[in-house]
Design a protein around this nucleic acid. Structure first.
Lengths: 129, 129
DNA sequence: ATTATTATATTAAGCGCTTAATACAATGAG
DNA sequence: CTCATTGTATTAAGCGCTTAATATAATAAT
């Protein structure tokens, strides 16, 4: 997690619990490779300060990520991304499948078939940097 | 909105405000054509009972949909879907664009390019009924 | 040993969403 | 007019999320 291009430092959607949004952003960092297996996570107080949230709120997010096996904590040394790369890959695939499934379900509910959705992706995809 | 295939009668995600979920489901019904312009919306008390939510919560959703112009209310006659079909179409396109954009952004954050996303849609699309 | 740094736990307060129980307002039906 | 049906407004309570202010526990560094 070098430098400043963090997805972490964005403001939060006031309609969703902050701790779940932090969980989601950490998954993105880990699954995209922006954070590597074994990499150290900033200290709770430090990161909470940086994100502008309460340490308790951040810890709740960390606990959830540990529960899922993506982070582990070593007493006083700090907190780290799991070294289990196979787990990272498996959870990533699973999450991607869910995102795709929910996307298609929502498009269908709005009256768009999978074929139409695919077409929109083809168009919109070109406009992304 | 004939018969029982309603997307309304699903249970609610406990992590999201109920009233926003009701707003979203009504948009789906209107945008997909399951509810037609000018069609009557069930009475607040009746629909609230059917959905298992408090009338106040349902009314909050209805107010939001009126604020966006998708519903209007006629004093004691009840509440109706807007007759402005052009508005419906415009808002539908807008929402679909947002859903597509957010989908691609999330996929990208997970390390998937637009091309990869498109491929996943192509595969997953065939498995839908 | 002492100190600093780490994660973790506790308690109280505030705020938004939801519910319950009402009451009020407007109008079409009888 | 009277009544039923519609939307709308009000008040109080409960619950989860967030914050603030602490305190505790464990260990590496000195």
């Amino acid at each position: 997690m070098e430098g400043g291009g963090d997805s972490l430092k964005q403001s939060f959607d006031p309609n969703l619990p902050i701790y779940t949004q932090i969980v989601d952003r950490f998954k993105q960092l880990i699954f995209s490779g922006a954070m590597s297996p074994g990499e150290k996570v900033p200290a709770v107080r430090e990161l909470a300060l940086e994100l502008g949230v309460n340490p308790n709120t951040l810890q709740r997010a960390m606990s959830e990520l540990e529960r899922e096996g993506l982070l582990y904590t070593e007493r006083t040394a700090g907190r780290f991304v799991t070294d289990d790369n196979a787990l990272i890959i498996a959870l990533r695939e699973e999450l991607i499948a869910t995102v795709v499934r929910e996307f298609l379900a929502e498009m269908k509910a709005l009256g768009c078939s999978s074929a139409e959705a695919e077409l929109l992706i083809k168009r919109h995809g070109g406009e992304m940097k």
